[in-house]
């Protein structure tokens, strides 16, 4: 199914979860990505930043809740920043059954990858295309 026909037929959109050590970073990057979508469909995006007590860190429970909240049945792309954010998502994917089926950790730069993922998802693209667009953000050089 092409992206356009996917949208027209009301196929569910890919969800995006943004995991950062900082709640403010995760929420702001989510806002930025949503703002750059323009006229596309409204992508389910959730931020999972910091710990449940509001400190810097990573919360498996916040990640799981975020992934469930954006799961429409088309898969969930998870982008992370550093260290424990990456390791926690990997551990949840490898060890547990808490994350929805079709949840994938995307290897991408956090900010650029989030924008690429959300914009691509807004076109009705599937998970593989969303993942590819986010990863491709690594190839954009700044000098």
């Amino acid at each position: 199914m092409s992206d356009d026909s996917r949208l027209r037929s009301g196929e569910p959109l890919v969800g995006v979860v943004l995991v950062s050590h900082s709640a403010a970073v995760a929420a702001s990057v989510a806002d930025l990505a949503r703002a750059l979508v323009g006229g596309g469909a409204t992508v389910p995006v959730a931020a999972a930043g910091g710990t449940r007590s509001g400190e810097l860190g990573t919360s498996a429970e916040l990640i799981t809740a975020a992934a469930r909240s954006v799961d429409r049945g088309a898969g969930v792309a998870v982008l992370t920043d550093l260290g424990s954010a990456v390791l926690t998502v990997k551990a949840l994917l490898a060890e547990g059954d808490e994350l929805p089926d079709g949840t994938r950790l995307v290897d991408a730069p956090f900010v650029e990858g989030a924008v690429a993922a959300v914009v691509t998802a807004s076109t009705g693209a599937g998970l593989a295309a969303v993942e590819a667009a986010a990863s491709e953000a690594y190839t954009y050089r700044k000098t």
């Binding site: 710990t51 400190e55 860190g57 990573t58 919360s59 498996a60 429970e61 260290g83 424990s84 390791l87 926690t88 990997k90 551990a91 949840l92 060890e95 547990g96």
Partner: peptide, 12 residues
């Protein structure tokens, strides 16, 4: 440990 630690030592 994975759900409560909040740092890299949790998943590890």
């Amino acid at each position: 440990l994975i759900s409560t630690v909040g740092g890299a030592s949790g998943p590890l």
